[in-house]
Amino acid sequence: MIVIGLTGWGDHPSLYSGVTTSKDKLFDYTGHFLTVEVDTSFYAIPSKAHVRKWCEDTPENFRFVVKAYQGMTGHLRGEIPFETKNDMFNAFIECANEFKRYGKLGMILTQFPPWFDCQSKNVQYLLYIRQQLKDFEVAIEFRNQTWYADKVVQQTMNFLREHQFIHTVCDEPQAGVGSVPFYPIATAHKGLVRIHGRNIHGWRNTGNAENWRKVRFLYDYNKEELQQLGQNIQKLHVEVKDLFVLFNNNSGQHAAKNAKELQEILNIKDEGLAPKQLNIFEGEL
């Protein structure tokens, strides 16, 4: 199975009915896609009440890819807002278990920062992640090229396989050590592809801190690029049972459009989508 979706459900105007409120956006989203990345969990661990609401508001075969909290992956500057590191992991595990209880957890995504390079202390930390999240399927996304250097890339993949980590395949600009190559290799029975765009100028020059996301992920894939991605995704799918593909290039609201174009290229017709709401003002505006 190949399932295509987006990172987050709250910022895709083309998917919503004309009367959509913020609380209806997830329902409208599930009329178009059967998976989504929960990116809000990177900034704050969702309450179990929120998770229950999301799970109850989505179709039976909908799956969430839950992004690990920033304190777990070394992004957080300063002290973690928990008494101990174990408390932080336990809070996240409670959240993830709620998704799992509903049968709607696709995987946990642990995305590491560009300064998380290939050295022994970071390998040890990955083992710590594996121990803490031992009951979950966990995807690893690197953002440092040293993990893919010619002399170590096979060791990297073997390490991920040995510890049952899902290798996250990324499509992103090739802009130095803080980006990774498109390396379509699977290391588990599930796979994950995250599509960030190819805005090399924006990747390198993100401007001020407030606007970095708008600059970095501003990109609209053309048909030829999507066809090439589709070919690589089909090849990767041969290696895995379930392959999740998430578009993250939403600065200019291109993600939903590109995801639908890729579905068409791959002839993916999702079954079990939520019914689309009718816009009662359609034809009157």
Rank of each mutant, 00 (worst) to 15 (best):
42 F>I: 05
63 R>T: 06
52 R>T: 14
57 D>S: 15
56 E>T: 14
45 I>T: 04
51 V>L: 04
34 L>G: 08
14 S>R: 09
57 D>F: 06
47 S>K: 03
15 L>W: 07
18 G>Q: 13
59 P>N: 12
51 V>W: 00
31 G>P: 13
9 W>T: 08
25 K>Y: 10
7 T>L: 02
47 S>M: 03
7 T>R: 01
21 T>K: 13
30 T>C: 15
62 F>Y: 13
35 T>F: 05
5 G>D: 02
48 K>E: 11
33 F>Q: 00
19 V>G: 04
66 V>P: 03
28 D>C: 09
21 T>V: 08
31 G>H: 13
25 K>S: 09
49 A>E: 13
24 D>M: 14
13 P>A: 08
41 S>N: 08
53 K>L: 12
49 A>D: 13
8 G>P: 07
42 F>E: 00
62 F>V: 11
23 K>G: 03
27 F>N: 10
51 V>R: 00
34 L>Q: 12
11 D>Y: 11
48 K>H: 05
59 P>D: 11
30 T>S: 15
27 F>M: 10
48 K>N: 09
37 E>I: 02
4 I>K: 03
14 S>C: 10
2 I>H: 08
49 A>M: 07
59 P>F: 13
13 P>Y: 09
36 V>S: 05
7 T>H: 00
36 V>M: 04
26 L>C: 06
49 A>L: 08
28 D>A: 06
15 L>E: 07
43 Y>Q: 11
54 W>S: 01
23 K>D: 11
15 L>C: 07
36 V>Y: 00
25 K>G: 07
43 Y>R: 10
43 Y>D: 12
24 D>Y: 09
31 G>C: 15
11 D>A: 13
43 Y>E: 11
18 G>F: 09
54 W>P: 01
64 F>I: 07
27 F>H: 14
26 L>G: 04
41 S>I: 05
48 K>F: 02
64 F>E: 03
40 T>I: 04
37 E>G: 02
19 V>Y: 06
12 H>V: 09
23 K>H: 08
54 W>I: 03
61 N>E: 15
53 K>R: 15
23 K>W: 11
27 F>D: 11
25 K>R: 15
38 V>F: 03
50 H>E: 10
18 G>H: 10
16 Y>S: 00
30 T>H: 10
38 V>Y: 02
20 T>K: 04
30 T>M: 11
47 S>T: 14
29 Y>S: 08
44 A>M: 02
60 E>W: 13
40 T>G: 04
38 V>Q: 00
23 K>S: 09
63 R>D: 06
35 T>E: 04
22 S>E: 15
9 W>D: 04
48 K>S: 08
46 P>S: 09
13 P>L: 08
32 H>V: 11
16 Y>V: 04
26 L>I: 10
49 A>V: 10
58 T>Y: 01
62 F>H: 13
48 K>P: 04
21 T>Y: 10
15 L>T: 06
26 L>F: 11
3 V>K: 08
45 I>L: 06
12 H>C: 09
19 V>W: 04
38 V>G: 00
19 V>A: 06
61 N>V: 10
3 V>A: 05
57 D>E: 15
45 I>A: 04
66 V>I: 09
7 T>Q: 05
60 E>N: 14
46 P>V: 04
